[in-house]
Design a protein around this nucleic acid. Structure first.
Lengths: 209, 209
DNA sequence: GGTATCGTTGACTCGCCAGTCAACGAAGTC
DNA sequence: GACTTCGTTGACTGGCGAGTCAACGATACC
């Protein structure tokens, strides 16, 4: 297959190999509870090689997080750019995140457990990136409020928090088996996130004011 | 002042002193980032004394969490036992948690950051206790659904997740300065939590089916 | 005042693990 | 085929911090 740059290509593959192994190990044991040697073992690679490709254990997690989170930010921005009701935009974002989890539960578990919810360690490091997502969502809500689609007595910042928070809670529920996660449950969950956030729990007609 | 059992009384006070110091240190530096000697220093007490009152660093955090969480569970159970609309019950619960944060931000910060959101470490240890809270809230929702007060196409478990999740997100927002926390903001937040969860973001009249 | 009790002290130990490094060997170059 | 490059190896070290422990001294009791 073509004149592959076998040297540098193999190197890139090894890096990927280590990264993927790290995701599995982080998901299984947690970042703090695992040793770098666990990652090396899982990747079938010598201990020292991990440090050839990454300067520290932290850098591995940073890489895992940023790789995925940047994709998420791009998707949210793209959804925002389109037109159509905000409700559909939020649905698209929730769907993307939920589908990401279904497609690769380990990566999402690591991101949520070790970064997004780890407010004291990596959550702090990546606070900026995490806030970007909140801001993009808040912007969607704000636009919908100006268009008269969403009520304007809830601040966009709060709405973004509640919306992303609901999604994260659901993921956490799946990760720790607090919530059923059969294929049909997953679709139901998507719908419930949107229904709850957009319509609330009250029965129709009971809304205050 | 009365014949104080000076010996055992002083001992109980020292234990409390260490516990309170630990809360401050955990809140400031995080559980993993702080050393036991930091706690001893903060309490103005010798290193070894910490181990006289607690068998391990973990036990200190366990104690801090359980002391407070049991109060929360009792309050939820009490609220549930009363009558009146579920919306008011949820409001009472949200108020209690938010007021707890205002009254003693450090304790709530430690509970949220180091236990509730720390799914891999202490969140796992105390998963049972945490689920108790979810169950109690879910029971309130289920009752309201039977009474026709809440819609019944959202599962009580999911509703509990979204409700508690919204509160926790707000606390997290305050803890990390993502959200304003002046006195009036705090009251607004309470209202927004209830409004969003019960009524949703959509403007009145736009609700689907 | 002598003795027992127990809260208190802080220097020390001991295991763990992230990160280093010297040496090896296979692909690439001349 | 000699030499260079660089991906690869894994034994080793250095520091850190939780938990131990022997000794101290203040209070209580006789």
């Amino acid at each position: 297959m073509a004149a592959t740059t076998s040297r540098s290509q193999a190197a890139a593959d090894k890096r990927r190999l280590i990264l993927d192994a790290a995701v599995r190990v982080f998901a299984r044991q947690g970042f703090h509870a695992c040793r770098v040697s666990d990652i090396a073992d899982e990747a079938g690679v010598a201990y020292g090689l991990v440090y050839h490709y990454f300067s520290s254990k932290d850098e591995i997690l940073d890489t895992v997080f940023l790789e995925r989170w940047n994709v998420l930010l791009a998707v949210i921005a793209e959804v925002d750019a389109g037109d159509g009701p905000a409700r559909d935009k939020l649905r698209a974002i929730a769907s993307f995140i939920v589908d990401s989890y279904r497609h690769d539960p380990d990566v999402m578990k690591v991101i949520v457990v070790e970064v997004t919810r780890a407010a004291n360690s990596f959550g702090r490091t990546h606070l900026g990136k995490i806030r970007e997502a909140y801001s993009l969502i808040a912007a969607i809500v704000a636009k919908a409020q100006r268009a008269g689609e969403f009520r304007d007595d809830v601040t966009p910042d709060f709405a973004a928090l509640a919306f992303y928070g609901a999604i994260e809670q659901v993921l956490t529920g799946w990760i720790f088996d607090l919530l059923p996660q059969a294929p049909e449950d997953v679709e139901t969950a998507k719908a419930q996130i949107i229904d709850t956030i957009c319509d609330g729990l009250d029965v129709i007609g009971l809304r205050a004011t």
